[in-house]
């Protein structure tokens, strides 16, 4: 299977040009930055609050931007054009993920600078961030592939935002209803628990359980995305 960086860059470059004329997507990315500004007024910021913003970035920037640009490609029938070109599934998906990756990194860096978050146990946190990014990217791709329009993608994002982006609020809810404890295995909580554990001084080996759960989510969502993409490629729509 060939892989052309030129084709990947062409798709990425097209998305960048398109982004600057798409205020709808651009304004969504600003929400976590505004929240980071608000939270930065209270000091000290607990780890849980840092991860409230970080998880929000993953949902609003990674999931939403990825979902919106793919849903728009479907809405305007441009994804079919890409699928009918010699670009492979890997090239299309890599190219289309470039913009979400760039915006996620920029938003994460800006928000962390604003709130003053500092990494403890860099390897564990970086690995968890990387896997979280991949899993949310896959979630965004799925969101785009399973919805027909940008508006529909925005609507479907709401429950995702509540479950994956408002984790801190949900944790309090889980504390009142122990039967919902299984929700703690959601990747956003696992990321937060991992960060709290390393902040309390635990080593890499102590947090591998959290990393394994996040990795499982990543693999599951990636497989689902590939299956749905391949199905969409021959559905004639």
């Amino acid at each position: 299977m060939s892989f052309s960086l030129k084709r990947v860059y062409a798709i990425f470059n097209k998305d960048i040009k398109d982004l600057f004329k798409n205020m709808f997507v651009l304004s969504t990315v600003l929400t976590p930055i505004l929240l980071a500004f608000l939270f930065s007024q209270s000091e000290p910021i607990p780890v849980g609050l840092h991860y409230f913003i970080i998880n929000l970035i993953f949902v609003m920037t990674t999931v939403y931007v990825q979902g919106a640009i793919i849903a728009e490609e479907k809405e305007k029938n441009t994804l079919r054009g890409l699928m009918m070109s010699p670009a492979t599934t890997t090239e299309i998906m890599t190219g289309k993920s470039g913009l979400s990756a760039l915006l996620t990194i920029v938003t994460l860096v800006v928000c962390m600078r604003i709130t003053g978050y500092e990494f403890v146990n860099v390897p564990a946190i970086f690995l968890a961030f990387f896997m979280s990014f991949i899993l949310y990217l896959a979630m965004g791709t799925l969101l785009g592939l399973l919805t027909r329009t940008v508006m529909e993608a925005s609507l479907v994002l709401m429950p995702l935002l509540f479950v994956f982006g408002m984790g801190t609020l949900l944790l309090e809810f889980i504390a009142d209803y122990p039967s919902l404890a299984f929700l703690e295995y959601l990747p956003n909580f696992q990321l937060q628990f991992l960060a709290e554990a390393v902040d309390a001084g635990q080593a890499f080996t102590d947090v591998t359980g959290y990393l394994i759960v996040i990795a499982a989510w990543m693999v599951l969502l990636c497989i689902l995305t590939v299956v749905v993409y391949r199905k969409r490629a021959v559905d004639g729509k």
Partner: peptide, 15 residues
């Protein structure tokens, strides 16, 4: 059509 509506004719063809 399947064209990128916010881009120019040239940009669409160049892609």
């Amino acid at each position: 059509s399947g064209l990128y509506s916010r881009l120019s004719v040239y940009d669409n063809l160049h892609l």
